[in-house]
Design a protein around this nucleic acid. Structure first.
Lengths: 354, 354
DNA sequence: GTTAGCACTCCTATTCCCCGAGTGCTAAAC
DNA sequence: GTTTAGCACTCGGGGAATAGGAGTGCTAAC
């Protein structure tokens, strides 16, 4: 059953006032906020209706109304106006996205911090693989007599390296051989397939070279593992305490320690469901995790490329400025997608000068 | 002026009781804790003396005593007993140190988290370079027509890589040439020396290859920069709220947001002064940073090797269980030093089986 | 120097009470 | 039928008042 125009206007006034002040909103306050040409008594009747229908709640009999999750939901779906960012804000975000270090983890971490600072809520950022990743190639670089560098590249174009030092000497031809062997046997394999393949190889391989192989392969496994294990970062947890709903230390404590269990957090987010739109708002009980039941989460997804997706989000009380937060997140997420999409600058012109 | 044995015993009883209970300690309580064969009246006299001398404080006239920073200092220096870790605790730490991923950053981050969990205080961990780092070598690996991997190794044995994609095609010989050029011109240079050298090279180099060179060199610069810029991690900020001294949300807020500014934090720590012993305790006003003036910090340093040192530490109220915390930190720091010191397992024996 | 005794201080917790915001209802007005 | 004015009522918040109790510091005796 659709709400009347007037009821919507009232609901909207309640939500927006409550978002600003964190105080229950009374009929008189609405009188001033929404320009309906009716008296407070009429508004009281309407409020009673809205409460009846579950859009509003009353902390106690003689207080004003506050929005229920259902009320917020309606607000978010229909009443909320798209928020435009100020020039200053976009400038700030763009500048921050212009990071020096382009390492995936660092960028994502930074983006989370930025969002937290921008919104005054705790934020988190994560990147994950939509599919099983395999090894694309191995390279070994001899450094000196007893150390070499392993470079492993996955089919998702992630490159990782490790310096390996050994108590024995190595020669270039040895490494060449090893490289060939690794590239013929282990390329294209997923994490699960590496161990069995290592077994198989062990049978033919000479004793000493097996040791080397297993060192390298176990590094490759670490890499794949770390990729399956999504990277999660949280930032700005202390912002929780900015908001009056977390003046209660215990409440704050519970949520904060939940946030710090980053792996938990990541799992409770409905990442696959991001689908259609690139931002998603979860209000209070809509969250899966118990710890978030009276908390809202705003998410925006971005593309990393090569089958990887990421999500960046913000956690806060249900009384959250959804419009502003969603706008900021979405802008940042877009920025990230672009950042990851671009190739290196073309080999530039030499700057002649004298 | 030395304190009498009895005064020390009393001071110790006050500190230890206050550490446990967070409640001011009265003369009667001391009667039961320290086995001095005197009455509470005598203890009261002694307490008055100790207060006079600045070792104890009185929140208000009719309350018990609490230790002053000076009191804690004496306790830490002379009265505190070395704490031995339980077997269970060492087991737990050892297990946690046995991490899969040996990447420097990850290990340090994990160590911080572990310490925080172990002590119930917020923890931080950082790693830094004692000296200027230079580039040791470059390697370029061709991946396909228009992308290659740069591998940069520093003289501190840090290896970093990056995948570079170009909108133009590349050939193996081209890369070979480039590698030689990079290795002759840029090896052994510090961060500051790279830009001038790049200028110099620009003059001889052909136009298109200059673009490539500058891409690679600017990555090298990123690497050196990230190494000068010490890595800092904090963990477990929410543990602050466990302790009654941070029931006041504002106080907690202030400290937490300070902790989250990791770079600030790192700078305010007197890292060079770690010198002699490998653990250091800073009590309240002994801290340089204003934000830490009524907070204590316990630090332990560890060796990363190749001129790098690290510090791991814990932040908490002055009422901190210094003995326990110091013992744990020191154990973890030792563990880290060992971890970084070791070379790879020797090329193992093949496991024959069928 | 030590101890018992005791008056005194001052914090903490509890209770009580008042105030005011805001409601819901009724009856009149539109 | 809807809107409005009027009014009694409810209930939480906050401040003042009060009681309780822990702990001190002093004095005088041992």
């Amino acid at each position: 059953m659709e709400l009347t125009e007037r009821k919507k206007k009232i609901l909207r006034a309640v939500v927006e006032s409550y978002i600003r002040t964190a105080e229950p909103v009374g009929s008189k306050a609405i009188l001033e906020l929404a320009d309906l040409n009716v008296s407070s008594a009429t508004i009281r009747n309407e409020l009673a209706d809205l409460t009846e229908q579950g859009y509003l709640e009353q902390p106690h009999t003689s207080a004003g109304r506050i929005p229920s999750p259902k009320g917020y939901r309606l607000y978010v779906n229909e009443l909320m106006e798209e928020q435009r960012l100020s020039l200053e804000e976009t400038r700030q975000i763009n500048e921050a996205l212009h990071l020096k270090m382009r390492e995936l983890d660092k960028v994502i971490d930074q983006a989370g911090r930025m969002v937290s600072q921008l919104t005054n809520y705790p934020a988190f950022a994560l990147a994950g693989n939509a599919r099983k990743v395999t090894i694309r190639r191995f390279d070994l670089i001899l450094v000196d007599g007893n150390s070499f560098i392993v470079v492993v590249m996955t089919d998702s174009s992630v490159v990782r390296n490790k310096l390996i030092r050994l108590p024995v000497d190595l020669s270039e031809p040895q490494l060449q051989l090893l490289t060939t062997l690794l590239n013929t046997s282990f390329v294209g394999k997923t994490l699960d397939e590496l161990t069995p393949e290592l077994m198989r190889v062990a049978e033919h391989a000479a004793g000493s070279s097996y040791g080397l192989i297993s060192l390298v392969v176990s590094f490759a496994m670490e890499v794949l593992e770390s990729l399956e294990h999504n990277a999660v970062f949280t930032a700005g947890a202390s912002h929780l305490l900015d908001h009056p709903e977390y003046q209660d230390v215990n409440k704050a404590q519970r949520l904060m320690s939940y946030l710090s269990e980053e792996q938990m957090l990541a799992q409770s987010l409905p990442l696959p469901a991001m689908g259609d739109d690139n931002t998603k708002i979860l209000i209070g009980p809509e969250n899966v995790a118990d710890e978030l039941k009276d908390t809202s989460v705003v998410l925006a997804s971005y593309d990393i490329g090569d089958g990887m997706k990421g999500v960046i989000g913000v956690v806060g009380p249900t009384r959250m400025d959804y419009a502003k937060v969603a706008a900021k997140l979405s802008y940042v997420a877009d920025g990230l997608s672009k950042l990851f999409g671009q190739t290196e600058l073309p080999p530039g012109k030499p700057e002649k000068e004298e």
